[in-house]
Write a protein that binds this DNA or RNA. Sequence first.
DNA 1: GGCGCTGCAATATAGACAGCATGTC
DNA 2: CTATATTGCAGCGCC
Length: 715
Amino acid sequence: MSLELEWMPIEDLKLPSNVIEIIKKRGIKKLNPPQTEAVKKGLLEGNRLLLTSPTGSGKTLIAEMGIISFLLKNGGKAIYVTPLRALTNEKYLTFKDWELIGFKVAMTSGDYDTDDAWLKNYDIIITTYEKLDSLWRHRPEWLNEVNYFVLDELHYLNDPERGPVVESVTIRAKRRNLLALSATISNYKQIAKWLGAEPVATNWRPVPLIEGVIYPERKKKEYNVIFKDNTTKKVHGDDAIIAYTLDSLSKNGQVLVFRNSRKMAESTALKIANYMNFVSLDENALSEILKQLDDIEEGGSDEKELLKSLISKGVAYHHAGLSKALRDLIEEGFRQRKIKVIVATPTLAAGVNLPARTVIIGDIYRFNKKIAGYYDEIPIMEYKQMSGRAGRPGFDQIGESIVVVRDKEDVDRVFKKYVLSDVEPIESKLGSERAFYTFLLGILSAEGNLSEKQLENFAYESLLAKQLVDVYFDRAIRWLLEHSFIKEEGNTFALTNFGKRVADLYINPFTADIIRKGLEGHKASCELAYLHLLAFTPDGPLVSVGRNEEEELIELLEDLDCELLIEEPYEEDEYSLYINALKVALIMKDWMDEVDEDTILSKYNIGSGDLRNMVETMDWLTYSAYHLSRELKLNEHADKLRILNLRVRDGIKEELLELVQISGVGRKRARLLYNNGIKELGDVVMNPDKVKNLLGQKLGEKVVQEAARLLNRFH
DNA sequence: GGCGCTGCAATATAGACAGCATGTC
DNA sequence: CTATATTGCAGCGCC
């Protein structure tokens, strides 16, 4: 894993001068060692490479050079795949530079989508693994022109949930040409072999990292830090995290603290904020952030109040309970060095680039949801992702990352396990029924009819051991046939119409089966029953149910005035899913009935980000259920589901459906208009002054124009 | 009886991808 | 087999 530290001057690149100009414009004069190494290994000649190196070591530029040189030489299109929407967005902005020399760049993902047909006009497409998988299933013509794939953050192969999709995308990408990028992994040679690529492994980082462990000294209020290079340091205070945070702040460094639960992230942030009077802050800049925070509509008022009091002291917390808008604001404030400390859950470990001089990893344990009372030590990969955030290029000479342990006895073990070890090897995650069945369905959808042998060969191209493939393959075929997702046509397997629909909707086959059974066995039912059915599927949103809450839900179950579409399960785990689904259904019902957001958040004890995610998932599932019911000719259900889908999406009663078509008009504004007698598009156009009065001059103007445009389109 | 305190017991616990219609990235 | 901060609640003394 060593390599000479060679820096190649940009001018030495065998690339056209206009390409070199663009790189130079970014202020880059020399390629850093990993970049140099990649070029020496034939990156520009289109050689297949697997590049493993720490985050922030300049992999994006390697991908850019790979793509551009490939496209210049071979024409066609290239696709850059990432595991996160936020990364897709980030890379899109970077790749935009290449439009200057004529390459058209687009991005497409679940939340920011370019129509499939339009993508044919672009040369470089940035997307997520799931979206690419989905695109392949839809088989657009232009996808055949794509001959170069960049697979970013390929270590997501190891993610139990997402890994199978990464793996199936990789199988098809490696039939063409690819460049794979990954965080450092231990079995990179094996993975490179699988990819048919040459490994390029480096540990080089733009800012050196020093890792350490902090533990309490016998003497109270004193903490000792031991670093990898055997240097030590002492800090004082009531709490290791706070003591070290303040120490770093006193030297003008920013701090990123990781905690293992949301509540701890919040309370740690609050504690740190109490000491911030000793830190010099840019008050004006902070009040600017507070002003922006006030303008964010997406967010609960409790969250916003708490964040405001923290941010005014230069501190913030960050976890997925917060809406995207709030998280973006916090990240940006930190990037601009106005916010000095962020206390986060693992949201910030992976994903967008947000380095800090000091990283404090507060917990190496994490509660295990599956086995009650059981605790896991976090994976080494996750530790490395967190510690790797230490050291910000341009601001810090060195990054420091420390792990908090309980006492001196733990120091050695933690040092050995986390600081000095290789990360876990990457293994196939296709070895589960859910993953494997979905995998086969996806292949048939993308490839069309295949013989058993052909289909099997696809599976053998995976990372899964052959014996396991054999086990799962037969079971999968049998199940898919029995449940009529696939059928036999001559010597081949083909998708049924139902199976094709399921593949296109991108829902899990088990989800589809549950929906089908639920709908076929019942007459049209109440909204709550549909929501409950969908929330109960494996694709349904997760939500935590408290103990008291569970009792209330069970009670409510007894005097429900509508019949649910799922039979009450006897098995304990299934039953708790059943109750969880009921909670999701109730939340969605309140949302659709226009219950105020703050009320929903406190009533169900969730954050604005949770609500958003839930709505997004249920929007997708109600849409899917609508289409499945059409496919199955269950028209009564279909009628109900169509309305349900529209109401879930916007969180509105049926009467507002027309008004929310206007962009810029959501549940709140539509209700305001409606209650003032503006009930349909025509009313908006006929009463422009009233609309402007209600919504404000500028917005009102836009809304009236938009309504007129919509009306015209209908006639 | 009501209030506040103490100390032990119970409780809770991370994250994030996907469809499609919009206009067009 | 392993954690820990927060919340809930019984029991108590005190006014």
